[in-house]
Design a protein around this nucleic acid. Structure first.
Lengths: 231, 231
DNA sequence: ATATTCATCTCGCTC
DNA sequence: GAGCGAGGTGAATAT
């Protein structure tokens, strides 16, 4: 990994065209040839970048560029597309290289999949007597998160999201349309389950006869833990 | 901006919990206190990070940590949420600070907004005699990209996407439902315009009586350019 | 290989 | 501040 702090300007062309005026920035060149161009603020997203596979070619400034104060030109060309990032360095304030080795990578825990597993295990949150049919119930247009039956034996299709917005209701609506064509399942009613359900999504769901269930992650995890201790 | 190359492990807890095993990485501390933790590969996204507003507190390793080989502990705490990143540094290979100043920011050009402007200018792509009503026509559920009228005076609502998939058709459907309740506009028909329309989206659109229009960006830009030269 | 879905999404805009 | 839509979305996963 090479770290360069330099006053530079940059031009990106590819899926869009973008220009960065002259300023002092951090340039990171990774082992795979990818380049990041960071300012001293904002988020984790660079101002500009080139994703691998790509190739960096460093050249001296031509006469024209040198007249503008450019000392080095970096051309980063994507290997497969015509995406290209051209950086003109005016002053190099720092330049160092480091051997980092391979990274073992991030280990994550606890997202939507976890919600699905927990709700399947605590299916009575839907109502007393509810029974799980299966998670990831396959259909022609994709798997339904959870299929269940209520105490009376009627089918329930559940769509789970971390944040419940309008798209999730649309998705569940498509599933319901399809599932209700199956005489073994019909009539199927829908339940939209999420940690947080946006007002517009709730209105749309209610309008379509879809129930809303707000999931309390911490509470469910608490039940999950005691269950784990019991068995 | 402070750049540190160090062998470290990290724990993030907040919207999820995540762990990074011991490895050599780049740590970037920005002027606003945000921290990025980069490996020597992957994309522009850090392995782990903390977004501003947040505060970094560096402490010496306690006895327990020192026994594990830790020399420094960084605790990055988010100012408003309980998001927290704890980094244990085992060996510091590089440490430097740099004054970067404020960045003027990126200047973008040419994405969906550009498609919208060009289609508005070349509205007869919809059919001879078509006239533009306005771009970003406001409705209660968000702005319609383009509202137009055909040669016969009938209203057309256009949704523009770079890549036309099923969500865009759903979006346009919601707009059409709403617009058709307005007696000044009804009947309103829909046109789904995109650089590329996915088969599933085309089927759904056709099924709902929505027209599909594939936009040739380069050709439109060509017309746009000659237009610019003519006037 | 392609298609779908999630994301500690981020970012920008409008209300 | 909340909501909504776009992204050079990227990344993972199922098909």
């Amino acid at each position: 990994m090479r770290l360069v702090v330099a006053t530079c300007s940059a031009e990106y062309s590819g899926r869009l065209n973008a220009h960065l005026p002259l300023a002092t920035r951090l340039l990171v060149v990774k082992a795979d040839g990818s380049v990041l161009l960071h300012s001293d603020g904002g988020s984790y997203k660079p101002l500009n970048w080139m994703s691998p596979p790509c190739k960096l070619v460093v050249t001296a400034a031509d006469e024209d560029a040198a007249a503008r104060g450019v000392v080095q030109v970096w051309v980063v060309q994507h290997a497969k597309s015509d995406d290209r990032l051209v950086i003109e360095l005016h002053e190099v304030l720092h330049d160092s290289a480091h051997e980092l080795g391979v990274d073992p990578g991030l280990i994550k825990d606890g997202v939507e999949a976890h919600l699905q597993v927990m709700l399947a295990a605590q299916i009575e949150l839907l109502g007393a007597g509810a029974r799980l049919v299966r998670r990831e119930y396959p259909t022609a247009i994709g798997p339904v998160d959870i299929l269940a039956r209520d105490a009376a034996g009627a089918t329930i299709a559940i769509e789970i999201k971390r944040r419940g917005d309008i798209d999730g209701v649309e998705q569940l609506t498509r599933y319901l349309e399809l599932l209700n064509r199956d005489p073994h399942l019909a009539p199927v009613r829908g339940v939209f389950a999420a940690q947080e359900i946006k007002p517009q999504a709730r209105v749309l769901a209610t309008d379509r006869g879809i129930g809303c269930l707000v999931l309390d992650y911490d509470a469910m995890r608490g039940v999950d833990d005691s269950g784990a201790r019991l068995f």
